[in-house]
């Protein structure tokens, strides 16, 4: 399983990387939506994208729209991980095609719970 972690903060990418690596994922990191798209245009088809909303160059919302518009990536699961926490913003992201939504701040358990909901838990999770 492969996770593409898209966040302009290196600290946040590091936090997310450690969580999903513990769950058995390989990871690729991108600091904005365009860098993530470049990885995918280059042949990377991740099982999961963890996507921040506010980023330079291309934000997470635009990234979700771009991925959903392209049939090559219809099996990629998109999960927003963002501080955007208004009701309306969550509705927008889901309408654009995001499958799940985690609001920052979160605990590692929150990511594990959501991946379980999405059927994307691959490794045994220690209790």
């Amino acid at each position: 399983m492969h996770a593409l972690i898209i966040d302009d903060s290196r600290a946040m990418r590091s936090i997310l990387r450690r969580i999903v690596t513990d769950l058995g994922y390989d990871t690729t990191e991108a600091e904005h939506g365009q860098a993530a798209l470049d990885h995918m245009e280059g042949g990377l088809v991740p099982d999961l994208c963890l996507i921040d909303w506010n980023m330079p160059v291309m934000d997470g919302y635009q990234f979700v729209q771009r991925v959903r518009d392209d049939p090559r990536w219809r099996d990629v699961t998109l999960m927003m991980v963002t501080t955007e926490s208004e009701h309306g913003q969550i509705v927008r992201a889901l309408a654009a095609g995001a499958h799940e939504y985690v609001i920052k701040p979160f605990t590692p358990d929150a990511i594990v719970d959501k991946l379980e909901l999405l059927g994307l838990l691959v490794a045994e999770v220690p209790a």
Partner: peptide, 13 residues
């Protein structure tokens, strides 16, 4: 933090 724990986003909205 509690909302993030296992609640599907569709249910949240």
């Amino acid at each position: 933090v509690e909302m993030n724990r296992g609640l599907p986003a569709t249910h949240l909205v």
